[in-house]
Amino acid sequence: MKPPVTRDPWAELRARTPARIALGRAGPALPTKAVLDFALDHARARDAVHAAVDWDALAGQLALPTVRVASAAPDRATYLRRPDLGRKLAEGERLRPAPQDFLLVIADGLSAAAVQAHAAPLIAALPADLRTGPVVLASQARVALGDEIGERMGARMVAVLIGERPGLSSPDSLGVYLTYEPRVGRTDAERNCISNIRPQGLGYEAAAARLTWLVREALKRRLTGVELKDQSDLGLIGPLAHRAVP
């Protein structure tokens, strides 16, 4: 006799969301297949955290000059335990001042896959005046590394494109963090964020439009962060208190 598994008669709702709904149950517990599917996705996400970006390939996709820098975290294991090191440049890193209104930084963050797949197409979708070089490519980097980079280069504003924490269903989410007048010591409340950029989430064109609106507005109002609320119906922008910044 087959053991009794209760099926859920709303399975067709699964088409509406990537969430794990209508899984059915064995008593109060998950059916065996759902348990093992979850274990496989977790195993893949764990493996994704430890992968590295192919920076040469990425630089090749950008039709812009690039500069490579590294954070003070020498390897992934240190990076994971020491976010302070990921927020500052490695000793001896030299960045020439290149004053500009808008500086692009691509940082690996917690998902090499996100950066590899989505950074170049997102930049390609930006208007010409925001496709500016040099683009800084930063390894073992956290969001706040953009503050030191922007300050040293004399940028009015920095946008850090960074791999977000890999999720079970989205190992390749790209985030953008925009900071006006970047300088060491900025808090996350002084940034605006666009999250979940990937074809299955927020598409390149939509993300580029939102970033463009934010940049224009930030230049006009001379700030980013909590006080720069988006009322333009573009969405996805706001303070970061409830989420984890890579």
């Binding site: 899984l23 924490r165 999720g167 269903s169 989410s173």
Partner: peptide, 12 residues
């Protein structure tokens, strides 16, 4: 959370 997997915040 459905199936313990938060598909927006990317954690379990």
């Amino acid at each position: 959370v459905p199936g313990a997997d938060d598909v927006m915040l990317n954690y379990q």
